[in-house]
Simulated assay, not measured.
Amino acid sequence: MDVRQTIGWNLRRLRVARGLSQERLALAAEIDRSYVGRIERGVENVTVSTLEALAGVLEVHVSALFQQVDAAAAKPAPLRSGRKPKAG
């Protein structure tokens, strides 16, 4: 797994663990949602500034995005699609 794929894997893992959609993460980090998707797929050369913005939204140190991925680990599960129910 190359570095771009490692960053993408960890970004998705952290995003899903916090229950954030790509759209919510992108909005909070002030980047385009499709860019988040490309980062998660490991096809984008992401800048340090963007990594800082994403890590800030996820409330982790930037180094968490570079954490080594176990080759046997299952791909992070996607979030359930659709809107969250309104709290009431």
Rank of each mutant, 00 (worst) to 15 (best):
A29D: 04
N45E: 05
S49G: 15
L14E: 04
P78N: 14
V16L: 04
R12N: 05
G37W: 03
L65N: 08
A28R: 13
Q68W: 00
W9G: 06
A53G: 08
R38Y: 10
N10T: 01
R15L: 02
Q22H: 09
P76L: 01
G88M: 08
G42Q: 02
E23A: 12
L54M: 05
P85N: 08
R12C: 06
D2L: 07
L54Q: 05
S63R: 08
Q67H: 13
S21T: 15
R38K: 15
S63I: 09
A74L: 04
P85M: 06
R24E: 10
W9H: 09
R15M: 03
R41N: 14
G56M: 01
A55C: 03
S49V: 10
L58Y: 01
A73Q: 12
K84M: 07
K75T: 10
T50Y: 01
R18K: 15
P85E: 04
A73L: 01
L54P: 09
S21Y: 07
L65R: 06
R83Q: 15
E23S: 11
K75G: 03
E40I: 13
W9S: 08
R13D: 08
V62R: 10
K86C: 06
K86V: 13
V60K: 02
E59G: 11
L25C: 11
R15H: 03
L51I: 08
G82T: 07
V60L: 01
L11D: 04
P76W: 00
S63T: 13
Q22N: 11
P85Y: 01
D70Q: 01
R80C: 07
V57Y: 00
I39R: 02
A17K: 13
V3K: 09
R41G: 13
L20V: 04
R83A: 15
R33W: 05
R41A: 14
A77R: 11
A72C: 11
R83Y: 06
E40G: 09
G88L: 12
R41C: 10
N10P: 07
H61N: 12
E59S: 13
R83D: 12
D2F: 04
R41T: 04
A73N: 03
R15I: 00
E52T: 06
V46W: 01
N45D: 11
E52H: 13
Q5D: 07
G37M: 08
R33V: 11
H61D: 15
A71P: 07
A26W: 00
I31M: 07
F66Y: 11
V46T: 15
V60Y: 00
R4T: 13
E23C: 05
Q5A: 14
V3F: 00
G82V: 11
R38H: 14
L11E: 03
Q5I: 00
D32H: 08
E59H: 12
R33Q: 15
P85G: 09
G88A: 14
R13V: 03
V3T: 12
G37T: 04
P85W: 01
L54D: 03
E30G: 12
A29Q: 05
Q68L: 06
A74G: 13
L79T: 13
A53P: 09
L65D: 02
V46A: 11
V36L: 02
S81L: 12
L51N: 12
V3N: 04
K84D: 10
T47D: 06
